[in-house]
Simulated scan of single mutants.
Amino acid sequence: MITSKQRAYLRSLGNKLDSIFQLGKNGIENTFLKQIDEALEVRELIKITVLNNSDIDPKEASRIICERLGADGVQCIGSKVVLYRESTKKPKIELP
Rank of each mutant, 00 (worst) to 15 (best):
R43L: 15
S79L: 14
V42D: 05
N30G: 06
G78H: 02
V82E: 03
L51Q: 06
I36K: 04
S12W: 12
E44K: 13
E29H: 13
E38R: 14
I36F: 02
S87Y: 01
K25L: 14
D37T: 13
C76G: 03
T3V: 08
G70V: 10
A61T: 08
E29C: 12
S79E: 04
I28F: 00
Q35S: 13
E38F: 13
L33V: 06
E38I: 15
A61P: 06
N15K: 15
V50N: 01
V42R: 15
E94A: 12
I64P: 02
N52Y: 05
S54R: 08
D18F: 14
S62P: 04
Q35C: 10
K5D: 11
R11E: 06
G70D: 01
I36P: 00
G24C: 03
G78L: 07
V81P: 03
V42G: 09
S4K: 14
S19M: 07
G27L: 00
E29Y: 09
K92S: 06
T88G: 07
L13Q: 14
K25T: 15
R11N: 08
D37M: 11
D57V: 09
D72F: 13
S54D: 01
I20C: 04
T49M: 14
G78E: 04
G73H: 09
Q75H: 05
I65S: 05
R43W: 13
E94C: 14
G24D: 03
R68A: 02
C66F: 01
L83I: 15
E67W: 01
D57Y: 02
I28L: 00
N52G: 12
T3C: 07
E41N: 09
I46W: 00
L33P: 02
T31N: 09
G78M: 06
K89V: 15
T3W: 03
K16H: 11
K47M: 12
C76I: 14
F21G: 03
I36H: 05
S54E: 05
R85G: 08
V42H: 05
E94D: 14
R11I: 14
I20A: 03
L95K: 12
L45K: 01
I36W: 00
I2E: 04
D55Q: 07
D72T: 13
R68H: 01
T88F: 03
K59F: 01
I93M: 10
L69S: 06
L45C: 08
K25R: 15
G24F: 00
N26E: 02
G73S: 14
L13C: 12
F21Y: 04
K80I: 15
R7L: 11
L69D: 07
E29I: 13
E44R: 12
L51R: 03
E60L: 13
R85E: 06
K90E: 15
N26K: 06
E60F: 07
E94G: 14
S4Y: 06
P58I: 03
I65Q: 10
E29Q: 15
D37F: 09
G14N: 06
A39M: 06
K16Y: 13
V50R: 02
R85I: 10
D18G: 11
L95Q: 11
L17E: 05
K47R: 07
L17H: 09
A61S: 09
K89Q: 14
R43F: 14
I64C: 03
K89M: 15
I28Y: 00
I20Q: 04
K92F: 07
T88A: 11
T49S: 13
